[in-house]
Nucleic acid binder design. Structure first.
Length: 317
DNA sequence: AATTAATTCAACCGCGACGTC
DNA sequence: TGACGTCGCGGTTGAATTAAT
């Protein structure tokens, strides 16, 4: 029996139609992929329902479209989300919210599905850990004023290390695929050369959100050349809790002033909601110093106590 | 080594927008 | 103008995989 076919339980109208037509659901087989790829190679994409019929695929047009766009398309970029892409996702999501398709248009080769999954599995996870809503002002401010500057810092550090010949674990092992049978390494992502990540130049202010969080500008191209097998390094976790020992975060918490500004490099960041309370950042700074002193051992990741501490501070904001 | 819990991500679903007749 | 088909989007699910116990 084919378990991919709807046979039992409540059936929607669509499901009933699919069953009538003996349509398949569930994971695609290699043969189906091959059929779809071949058909599109000869006839092009679009008109998905008729495409599915003409190709002899026992799938809905929707299913074919999804499989093609999210998986089989030759320019689909697979692998870990890079630091640059993470930063871009955070930035664009702060502007547009859950407009995944719109966000995906600015990340060549990435699908809306992948970005959506990234957001749900990584970003929302951290909101959950901090016991706050992912849409809350607190969480958004944490992203803007801590995570995103930290990402920029890491990207800059990676770029500097690259130019000095040092391998830095900052990029992913990204690959394009032709199909499931034929995975091949990505060429350098030259197609991205015209895509400037919308991080503001020094002293520029993002007019959308009034935020001035970065002095960096870069392109996806110039930061996609390093590779690493360290998957964790491109995880958002690093940018939240993994304050490095050797490269201290250049946030001068001691200079948080009465106007709720914090010095980031040569700039001042302003919290519109007043979440920069001096005690919070000074305490963070103290934690960071302890890390750099080796107070928590050689591992430069934050431990459970650090997480608890951060949560406490966060809850007190 | 076995079991359980957590995570990831491909695939599905419903719905609204749009085009055609 | 309304019925119908198609397409694309965002939310959700669940199987497979990985990590923890």
């Amino acid at each position: 029996m084919d378990h991919n076919k709807i046979k039992v339980g409540f059936k929607s109208n669509n499901q009933e139609k699919e069953e009538d037509l003996d349509l398949r659901r569930g994971p695609w087989t290699v043969e189906e992929d091959f059929t779809l790829i071949n058909f599109i190679a000869h006839h092009g994409e679009g008109r998905w329902n008729s495409l599915a019929r003409c190709a002899g695929l026992k799938r809905t047009g929707k299913s074919c479209r999804l499989r093609w766009l999210n998986y089989l398309r030759p320019d689909v970029r697979r692998g870990n989300i890079t630091l640059e892409e993470q930063l871009l996702i955070l930035e664009l999501h702060s502007r547009w919210g859950n407009r995944w398709s719109k966000i995906a248009q600015h990340l060549p080769g990435r699908t809306d599905n992948e970005i959506k999954n990234y957001w749900r599995t990584r970003v929302q996870k951290h909101a959950k850990q901090l016991k706050c809503d992912v849409n809350s002002k607190q969480f958004k401010d944490t992203m803007k004023y801590l995570w995103m500057p930290r990402l920029v810092e890491r990207i800059q550090a990676a770029a500097a290390a690259t130019t000095s010949g040092t391998t830095v674990a900052s990029s992913s092992t990204t690959t394009y695929i032709q199909n499931q049978e034929n995975q091949q390494p990505l060429p350098n992502i030259s197609t991205m050369s015209e895509v400037n990540v919308p991080v503001q130049l020094a002293n520029n202010v993002d007019k959308t959100n009034g935020l001035n969080y970065s002095s960096a500008i870069f392109t996806l191209e110039n930061s996609s050349t390093t590779t690493s097998s360290d998957n964790s390094s491109s995880d958002l976790t690093d940018c939240c809790y993994n304050f490095p020992i050797n490269q201290s975060v250049n946030l001068d918490y001691s200079q948080v002033n009465q106007t709720n500004q914090v010095c980031y490099g040569d700039q001042y960041l302003t919290s519109p909601t007043g979440y920069f309370n001096p005690g919070y950042f000074q305490a963070l700074d103290q934690q960071n110093s302890q890390l750099m002193d080796g107070g928590y051992g050689s591992d430069n990741s934050w431990n459970i106590e650090d997480m608890w501490f951060l949560q406490q501070q966060f809850n007190n904001m």
